[in-house]
């Protein structure tokens, strides 16, 4: 028996019919065609499928879709668009933190969640926040630099807003 799942997806109220045991990752990719959320290991060990649930990073590959009933999910598609990237996305591009790009959506979302709660994180806090993501191309240093740069960008933008 299919279940009706209603939740906020990237700011929009969304209703979709799902199988009772269907995983959020499959609902996002196969039913809603949001393929920015990647399937890596499929068992919670790589972080590629990370999305934000009520602002906190979670793994879509281990989350029954029905768990998001009435809650807010943010995927990489909800962060920015080609004409106007989110500061974290901008920083990842500028600092060379993207190579094959497979781990990037998850990394960007965990970084956004960190910076929303802690606008000026220490290096250790950044490493801790990204500790649930594996990358096999960039070597992590550029990713660390990108998050620091994004923190500066977002703090400057907040400052401008404050003075406006």
């Amino acid at each position: 028996m299919m279940k009706a799942l209603t939740f906020t997806l990237n700011g929009d109220q969304t209703r979709v019919e799902v199988d009772p045991g269907e995983l959020l990752l499959d609902v996002l990719r196969r039913r809603l065609f949001l393929t920015g959320t990647k399937k890596g290991c499929g068992e919670g060990e790589c972080g590629a499928c990370t999305v934000l649930l009520d602002g906190q990073p979670v793994l879509a590959c281990l989350l029954p879709a029905m768990k998001v009933q009435g809650r807010a999910v943010t995927t990489i598609e909800g962060l920015g668009h080609e004409q106007r990237l989110h500061p974290v996305q901008e920083a990842f591009l500028e600092k060379g933190a993207v190579q094959c790009g497979f781990c990037t959506p998850g990394m960007v979302l965990s970084s956004k969640s960190l910076l929303d709660g802690q606008p000026q994180p220490s290096e250790d806090e950044i490493k801790q926040a990204l500790s649930g993501h594996l990358c096999r191309c960039t070597g992590y240093v550029q990713i660390l630099e990108a998050v620091k740069d994004a923190a500066e960008k977002m703090t400057r933008a907040e400052g401008r807003k404050g003075h406006a």
């Binding site: 919670g44 990073p57 979670v58 989350l63 649930g132």
Partner: peptide
């Protein structure tokens, strides 16, 4: 335990 994403749920 696990990772931040796992500890969140």
């Amino acid at each position: 335990v696990g990772s931040p994403q796992i500890r969140n749920v």
